[in-house]
Nucleic acid binder design. Structure first.
Lengths: 147, 147
DNA sequence: ATAACATTGGTAATATGTTGTCATTATGAC
DNA sequence: GTCATAATGACAACATATTACCAATGTTAT
């Protein structure tokens, strides 16, 4: 009896993550559309805000699990759109630090307020324990593949 | 006291799902690369196999949570590559039924074997209960946004 | 200091996915 | 049967992401 029933469940989880990824992008796009912000751009802003300090492009990429090229592209268009600002990096001449512009800060504030309400509403029918377990499992999964 | 601590955890879960989505695509691409199959194409094949019968493009899209256009594009190239085959639909002249070709069946068989081992290995450090709870939460989340 | 190596930015090609639009074919109400 | 409506396929424009490559800049070992 080497078989377990865990493998198939793991597979179902993977498929559900694929589906949910798309659905969550939709949700984010909807919430951000009044401000011209897409899910991808919102996540860039979030990575910077959550870090509590300006970040370089590779640092943002690392945080989000994306390639630096993908982040670079977004950062460039978001700078052009005026929601991000650059700051010279005292420790590195080439790698500029990225922060939110004043406009970006304002937009992010409104988005974040919306998002907090959204998350609270979404979690009404889920228990704290269920959510904690889920987050713990997802983190373990990410660690498993993160290298 | 209207505040709960569930919202922030829900938000963390959403961010983890974004990251895991990318990591899982990588895993699938790696496993499929010996057969020229990417994650996206593998999932199309999986949707058909798991249905147990040929499906139309919109049916595949519905199953996977994608738009029919995205699926149509993949189905067309996979037909050109010879891994999918068409079958006239007795109940609908316009919507052809899609099934795996013989080559597709053979490739899928090998992929599936690999994937079963992979899922079992991945779930070693997770309990059945953790996995069940996680799947349940993810499904509830998907239902929440599925309309 | 210099040489080897790693990091960063930039660019291009490709894959995946969305929205929007149009024409065609099915379906259903009457 | 006819007409309004829905579903399907086809196509285009765009957004997001990857890999691959090159040039420029930093870092480290010697």
């Amino acid at each position: 009896m080497t078989k377990t029933k865990k493998g198939p469940v793991f597979t179902e989880i993977a498929l559900e993550i694929f589906k949910l990824g798309g659905l969550l992008v939709n949700e984010g796009d909807l919430m951000g559309s009044p401000y011209g912000i897409t899910s991808a751009r919102w996540k860039i802003m979030g990575a910077i805000v959550r870090a509590g300090k300006p970040l370089t492009v590779p640092q943002i990429a690392k945080t989000m699990g994306l390639t630096r090229q993908a982040v670079q592209r977004l950062v460039d268009v978001m700078y052009a759109d005026g929601v991000l600002a650059f700051q010279t990096n005292p420790e590195h001449k080439r790698a500029k630090l990225i922060k939110l512009s004043e406009v970006g800060e304002e937009i992010y504030g409104k988005l974040d307020k919306k998002q907090v309400d959204w998350a609270q509403t979404c979690s009404i029918h889920l228990t704290k324990q269920e959510l904690d377990t889920t987050l713990s499992v997802l983190k373990k999964m990410a660690d498993m593949f993160d290298h």
